[in-house]
């Protein structure tokens, strides 16, 4: 998978603060430096249920992800990593605390405002591809633009689909595509709006290892080439090792950070958390 020399920078990407080759520093920034983060949460608490039966999925989490970087959130099952991502992405509202997307405070937004924010400023990748079966690949990719009534940028569409190798499959419906192809369509859909942040939830979970590796390379490439900000939730150390940094979560708390992670370093930390 190769990138054309992307002269075009995603317009919405906040690139001043986190350069493409920005020095590897800390992945999770502290709450004080929130404005510099592409997406951040402070004092996030999420409780499911109530009273005795209540489960604290997030327990006072402060976290920020720098722009133009590929970050991963890791942790064992039930550590709260998916909840954290859902809160940051405006898919779910935290019980208390604050979520910022760039300069916007998501916690104060109405459902409609949240929806419009997601539509225009956030991209999503899911484990189970989640393409709409009634739409063709192209219609699926352009859906977020259509929903917001924006005109599709043909050149950007061509660039994306060519680099993802799906430009010949655009007229097909999802049921006629392989798993890898479907996930690449989903990637194109996530990037078509030039979102400020792409949130990926176990994007390689349903792929074979080769397709998975290709996908991660592409995501990494999009960060390098276009300064895209990507936040990925995964439990796969191999996937996590493609990221610039990894935040470890356990029992709703941040349990550690690894910059420039290797598989071994990630496995080590996980083992320590589990043990």
């Amino acid at each position: 998978m190769s990138f054309p020399n992307g002269s075009q920078q995603p317009a919405a990407a906040p690139s001043e603060q986190g350069g493409v080759n920005g020095q590897p520093g800390f992945a999770g920034q502290l709450a004080e430096s929130v404005p510099e983060s592409a997406t951040s949460g402070s004092a996030l608490v999420k409780v499911y249920g109530s009273g005795e039966a209540g489960v604290r999925a997030l327990d006072n989490v402060d976290i920020g992800f720098a722009g133009g970087r590929f970050s991963a959130i890791m942790g064992p099952s039930g550590s709260g990593k998916s909840t954290l991502m859902h809160c940051l992405a405006g898919l779910d509202t935290p019980t208390s605390g604050r979520v910022m997307l760039g300069d916007t405070d998501l916690t104060g937004l109405s459902d409609k405002q949240l929806t419009l924010t997601r539509r225009d400023r956030i991209g999503f990748l899911f484990q189970s591809f989640n393409l709409l079966p009634t739409l063709t690949a192209e219609q699926n990719i352009l859906l977020p633009l259509e929903l917001s009534g924006r005109k599709p940028d043909r050149q950007w569409l061509n660039e994306l689909t060519e680099s993802l190798g799906i430009d010949q499959r655009l007229r097909h419906r999802p049921s006629e595509l392989s798993g890898g192809q479907q996930q690449r369509v989903a990637v194109a859909r996530a990037l078509i709006t030039r979102p400020e942040v792409v949130f990926a939830d176990e994007p390689t979970g349903a792929l074979d290892s080769k397709s998975g590796a290709n996908l991660l390379e592409f995501l990494r490439g999009s960060v390098r080439q276009f300064g895209q900000t990507v936040v990925m939730v995964t439990h796969d150390p191999v996937a996590a090792s493609h990221a610039d940094s990894v935040v470890l979560l356990a029992d709703g708390n941040i349990a550690g950070r690894i910059d420039d992670p290797t598989q071994e370093a990630v496995l080590d930390s996980l083992r320590r958390l589990g043990g």
């Binding site: 992405a89 898919l91 459902d111 929806t115 997601r118 539509r119 989640n130 079966p133 977020p144 917001s148």
Partner: peptide, 16 residues
């Protein structure tokens, strides 16, 4: 159900 949720995640408003 999943599809509706996906559309909502992608930015389809409740009204839409």
């Amino acid at each position: 159900g999943r599809e509706s949720a996906l559309l909502r995640a992608l930015g389809l408003t409740r009204g839409q």
